[in-house]
Design a protein around this nucleic acid. Structure first.
Lengths: 127, 127
DNA sequence: GCTTCTTTTTACAAAGTTTTTACAACTCCA
DNA sequence: TGGAGTTGTAAAAACTTTGTAAAAAGAAGC
């Protein structure tokens, strides 16, 4: 408990093109540092930390923005868009839209056959 | 916002070709993930959860759509059709029309001779 | 004050889903 | 076997959700 970074000392994420070191807040795409704004980083980090799992919009808005269910906003969509832009050609590969539910980050070339990760719920976080 | 499932942590359904995990909202046909829309999923889930039992139209319209008896609509038929399409060659095996009453989901190769399952009423749910 | 960068909102377009419509095909029973 | 009632089906319409560009609002530094 009571650590400076509240429970964010997670293992780095690493795949063919993307690496993300949570303790340094550094993200690299094909070796080049991606400069993300605070919200962009928070959003990507949350998605990546639950790679392979669907995260509902409610949950993203709650965890990244602190918004409750009553708030109606498009800021999540706009941030997803900017993340995708910065991810360039890999955008579609990485950030998947689950219509009517939310988004899912998929590790590079994660086989599409296995849509969910073993031993983890399909919907990772609830709002 | 999206009301997907309310506390339905039921046992998964599993047979020769079809598996359905209610807590993950995942449906697989011969190992391949079936992508269903919300209403399609809700409808199939209700039918599968009462496999072998007839569910009247009224009950389906009430439980999946919240419609009362006074509402006249063909949306149930259309959704059944789309489910059957996605079930491919197994459609007739799985989703049975009970003329004048409703529909019944039958487990794969469930014997047609026994029209009702032991210890269960022929008509599962009432509206 | 201005300037720059970030975030949110607005307004509309695009995509996806659900319902209705219209008619064809089927079932049941007098 | 004929016809009323029920279900199947394709296509259109209605509706909902997501994508996108641009403007507005907010925050931090000079």
């Amino acid at each position: 408990m009571g650590s400076l970074q509240m429970g964010n000392s997670l293992q780095p994420y690493r795949d063919e093109h993307l690496t993300m070191e949570f303790d340094q807040q550094s993200v690299k795409l094909d070796g080049e540092r991606m400069t993300l704004t605070r919200k962009e980083y928070d959003l990507l980090a949350l998605l990546v930390q639950h790679a392979g799992e669907i995260i509902p919009r409610d949950a993203l808005l709650m965890r990244v923005w602190g918004y409750g269910a009553e708030i109606r906003t498009r800021t999540l969509d706009v941030h997803v868009r900017r993340l995708r832009k910065k991810l360039g050609g890999y955008a579609d590969q990485y950030i998947e839209t689950i219509f009517g539910i939310g988004y899912r980050f998929q590790p590079y070339r994660a086989p599409r056959f296995f849509q969910t990760v073993v031993n983890k719920p399909a919907i990772a976080i609830s709002a």
